[in-house]
């Protein structure tokens, strides 16, 4: 678990969740993005694990607090705590196991049932390095993503392919949603007080999008 540094300098803090079936590579995507590490001997995730990383989006420092969870159906019992305050999600499937793509619909339904309608969602087909074993065509996944109005990318945590892009895209889109919302209500996003833009999982339980007003949703 990455240490939380409260004194770190950032402009925005966004909570992003990783979801998808067991064994699709959620934890390795997370470790690749936050620590540039990949492990072939990675262990199953128990409960909830967290990591953070800050990136620059336009002229702002955005800190992503990424939540990773166990894929087993039984762990859906902690769903409400897990999704609370999330403004972005990476919905991961394994391109070599079709069943994990079939379950994407279920995950999406659960995600939408527990989060704000403005949440930024990216469908992620992981393990794209295993081209010879590919069981889900890019076209099918792309068509699904378009139909469901989510972003889409194929990644390989092992080869470090598109991982940076996927997270950066989600964080950038969140930033734009927040900025647009702020402009809609006549404010400059840069002028929003630091640290108050969103409250991740706090008692107020308000996502970034909600906090700056949902009247135009």
């Amino acid at each position: 678990m990455a240490a939380y540094r409260a004194d770190e300098d950032y402009d925005y803090l966004y909570k992003v969740v990783l979801i998808g079936d067991s064994g699709v590579g959620k934890s390795n995507l997370l470790s690749r993005f936050t620590r540039n590490e990949f492990s072939l001997e990675s262990k199953s995730t128990i409960g909830v694990e967290f990591a953070t990383r800050s990136i620059r989006v336009e002229d702002k420092i955005v800190k992503a607090q990424i939540w990773d969870t166990a894929g087993q159906e039984r762990y859906r019992a902690i769903t409400s705590a897990y999704y609370r305050g999330a403004v972005g999600a990476l919905l991961v499937y394994d391109v070599t196991r079709h069943v994990t793509f079939e379950n994407v619909e279920r995950w999406l339904k659960e995600l939408r049932g527990h989060t704000d309608s403005n949440i930024v969602i990216m469908l992620v087909g992981n393990k794209a390095d295993l081209r010879h074993l590919c069981a889900v065509s890019t076209e099918d996944a792309k068509a699904f993503a378009e139909r469901e109005n989510t972003f889409f990318m194929e990644t390989s945590a092992l080869e470090s392919m598109n991982v940076e892009n996927a997270f950066t895209e989600v964080l950038t889109q969140i930033y734009h949603v927040v900025s647009r919302k702020a402009l809609d209500i006549g404010g400059d996003p840069a002028a929003l007080p630091k640290g108050q833009t969103i409250n991740v999982g706090g008692k107020d339980d308000v996502s970034a999008v909600k906090k700056v007003g949902c009247c135009n949703a």
């Binding site: 409960g47 909830v48 705590a81 706090g202």
Partner: peptide, 22 residues
């Protein structure tokens, strides 16, 4: 801790579930 994750102490979930094995 409350400020970080709403006081649910989820950070300790794994520690207690698998008795510090990890």
């Amino acid at each position: 801790l409350e400020d970080l994750d709403g006081g649910e102490y989820l950070f300790a979930f794994r520690m207690l579930m698998v008795l510090f094995r990890r």
